[in-house]
Amino acid sequence: MTRKQKRFAVIFSALAVLGGAVALVLTGLSEQVTFFRTPTDIVSTANASENDGRLRLGGLVVMGSVETLDDAAVRFAIEDANHAVTVRYAGILPDLFREGQGIVAEGMLQPDGTFRADTVLAKHDETYMPREVADALKEQGVWKGEAAGDASASSEY
C-alpha cells in the first residue's frame, strides 16, 4: 500500500465507525428516550399517539390511594392540580415513597388509561421533590418550593 492508501484506509475506517455511531445515536435518541408527562398532560392530550412508548409520569401520590393487590403488586394514583392517573406497579416501592410525596413512575400507558410502571423513583431525601415534578407543579401554580430550604443539607451519592 502506498502512503496515500494507508491514510485513506485509516480515515475510511474512522469515518465508518463515526458514521455508525452517529446513526445509532440518532435512532437511539428518537426511539429510546422517555418523555415526561403530568397527569394533566395525559388526560388532556388530544392526540393519543403522543402517549405511546415509554413515559415518565410525575406528580404527587394521592392520599389514601395506595393499596397492595393480591399478587403483591401495588396500585396508587398520581395527581397534579387537575387530574389523577391510576398507576400499577409490580415491585418494591422506594423507601421514601409516601402518600402526598412527589414521585416519578416510569412505564407505559395502557389502553384503558391506567399506567403500568416498571420503575418508581422517590429520592432518598426528605425534602426532595423530583425536579420535573417540581417544575410541572410550579407551572400549575400549586407548589411554591421550599422558601427556607437549607442549602447545607445537601449530600451526595
Binding site: Q32, V33, F35, R56
Partner: peptide, 10 residues
C-alpha cells in the same frame, strides 16, 4: 421545553 429522560435503553 419538553422534559425527557434518556435511560438505559438508549
Amino acid at each position: 421545553g419538553e422534559k425527557i429522560s434518556v435511560g438505559a435503553p438508549y
